[in-house]
């Protein structure tokens, strides 16, 4: 019989690794009372197929828009609904995939929604609503969402600090919009920047030491 030295047990069947502790086994194999039955399906494979299948359809949908022409005249209700559906789909796929790390999933969400809005605005003949409203509002709200989540879920600092930092930096991005006068309506951008600055201050005051510790650890050369 095979033998696991860590567990000091004999193992029936041809196990290269101990079924209990996964350490390599020694000795000769004996017949197993359980036959090896092939998987009827694998959840992991199904999820991977769904993920990459979804991603292909979503990216394909976005790419094909370029060939359909741009401008408000070209942009019918069908395209609006189509883009709406694939964006929803993309957000749902990312939310499921990154569900184990809330801070990370917020960064993904901000990036996805921001980029899709830019692209949509571009397809629609560039009316500027993405920079004026969509991006600053999404960035600002995500920072608030992050502060609330971190507070209510008691996540460890190390697990959210990097992605929180990225979210806040994204929130500072509308400064560029203001400086280069890319926006006609300045209020949303201004509020977003203000929220980001306040969040930065709050984190520095309450979590400053931990933040510096984390940064030192992550930037260690």
């Amino acid at each position: 019989m095979k033998r696991c030295h860590d567990c000091s047990v004999e193992i029936a069947g041809d196990w290269q690794h101990c079924p209990l502790c996964q350490e390599p086994t020694r000795g000769h194999a004996s017949p197993s009372p359980f036959p090896a039955v092939a998987l009827s399906f694998s959840r992991r494979r199904i999820f991977r197929l769904l993920f990459f299948g979804s991603l292909a359809i979503i990216l394909g949908s976005f790419a094909v828009q370029l060939f359909l022409g741009r401008g408000p005249a070209e942009f019918g209700a069908v395209r609006s609904v189509w883009l709406g559906v694939v964006t929803m789909w993309l957000v749902a796929v990312m939310a499921v995939r990154k569900r184990r790390n809330v801070a990370k999933s917020i960064v993904y969400l901000v990036l996805i929604v921001g980029l899709v809005c830019l692209y949509w605005d571009y397809l629609n003949g560039w009316q500027g609503w993405s920079l004026n409203y969509a991006i600053p509002i999404v960035c600002g709200s995500s920072i608030l969402a992050l502060l609330i989540t971190v507070r209510s879920m008691r996540i460890e600092v190390g697990n959210y600090i990097v992605y929180s930092g990225i979210t806040i930096l994204l929130g500072l991005l509308p400064i560029v919009f203001l400086v280069f006068s890319w926006v006609t309506t300045t209020l949303p951008s201004a509020i977003c920047v203000a929220v980001s600055v306040i969040a930065l201050v709050v984190i520095q005051v309450y979590r400053g030491a931990e933040v510096r510790h984390e940064l030192a650890k992550r930037l260690h050369v």
């Binding site: 047990v9 004999e10 193992i11 069947g13 079924p19 209990l20 090896a36 039955v37 992991r44």
Partner: peptide, 12 residues
């Protein structure tokens, strides 16, 4: 106590 383990294969 001497213990013998028998297991059904489950993971990939």
């Amino acid at each position: 106590i001497a213990v013998t383990v028998a297991a059904a294969r489950v993971t990939e």
